[in-house]
Structures are given as structure tokens and as C-alpha cells.
């Protein structure tokens, strides 16, 4: 894309249902890009402040869950001068309609962006069922 527009601030979206989280703290929805080729589905998620070993990716029953923990980066004796954004965990769930090769999933976190490659499984062979006449 050649065109370049001015970036606008997007307010961080808090996860609506916080009832499931046991630990206190804010939880945000990361912004994602999802795209698909014939072979794989790729997901990119903005999770600034999350270190590679603080990301949890879970896929079961076609539900993909992303969690990113953020360690507070402010020192204890710092006092606020200006607060324009809040710090919190990231959490987002997706339901996948396609079969995924679970053991071939690749995840990579760089500069606060998670890149998740989900290779599609070979489609189940269509079966033909012969109907016998009595």
C-alpha cells in the first residue's frame, strides 16, 4: 500500500465480560489482522508490553484463545503526570471454522506483535454412501 494516512488514537477496548477472570486487573481486546491463504490462516495481534513467555495460545474444540500478560512497567515511587492509556492483560477468543493441524501451529512474538500461523488440515475425504434398494 503506497498511501499513508495519519494514525488516529484508538482507545483500548476492554473485554466486556470480566466475570471469567479470576485475577484482578484490566483486560483488553487486542487489535488483530486475520488473513487466509489456501494452506494456512495467519493471525496478527497487537500486544504491546507482552513478553514472548507471557503469551498463552490455546486451541481446543475449534476455539482459539489468546492471552497475554503484561508485567507492570512503572516503578513503585513514580507518580502520574499524564495518563492517556491503561495497562492490562490481553484476551481474545476466536472460533475456527476450519480444521487446523494442531501440531504445526507456529507462534512468534516480535516487538509486541504476535504472529500466529495455523496450517489447515487436509479436508476430510468426501465419502459417498451408496443407498441400497431393498
Amino acid at each position: 500500500m503506497a498511501e499513508s494516512k495519519e494514525l488516529q488514537v484508538k482507545e483500548k477496548q476492554e473485554v466486556a465480560s470480566s466475570g471469567e477472570h479470576t485475577r484482578p486487573g484490566l483486560v483488553f481486546t487486542p487489535a488483530v489482522d486475520i488473513f487466509e491463504t489456501d494452506r494456512e490462516i495467519t493471525l496478527l495481534a497487537d500486544m504491546p508490553g507482552v513478553a514472548a513467555n507471557d503469551v498463552t495460545i490455546d486451541l481446543r474444540d475449534d476455539i482459539l484463545t489468546l492471552t497475554g500478560d503484561v508485567k507492570p512497567w512503572e516503578g513503585a515511587d513514580e507518580s502520574d503526570v499524564l495518563v492517556e492509556f491503561e495497562i492490562g492483560k490481553y484476551y481474545r477468543q476466536f472460533s475456527l471454522s476450519e480444521l487446523i493441524k494442531q501440531d504445526k501451529i507456529e507462534a512468534n512474538l516480535q516487538d509486541g506483535v504476535l504472529r500466529l500461523v495455523l496450517p489447515k488440515a487436509e479436508k476430510a475425504m468426501p465419502r459417498k454412501i451408496a443407498v441400497k434398494a431393498a
Partner: peptide, 20 residues
């Protein structure tokens, strides 16, 4: 947080010796 509408959103803190 109070958004200024400008990108990037900034958090500023201070202690005795520094601004962050």
C-alpha cells in the same frame, strides 16, 4: 485515562529525579 486524541497515547510519570 484522558485521551488527547493524538497518536501515540502517552503516559507520563515522574519521581524525584526523572520524568518517564
Amino acid at each position: 485515562p484522558i485521551s488527547s486524541g493524538l497518536f501515540p497515547a502517552l503516559n507520563i510519570t515522574e519521581d524525584k529525579d526523572n520524568y518517564y
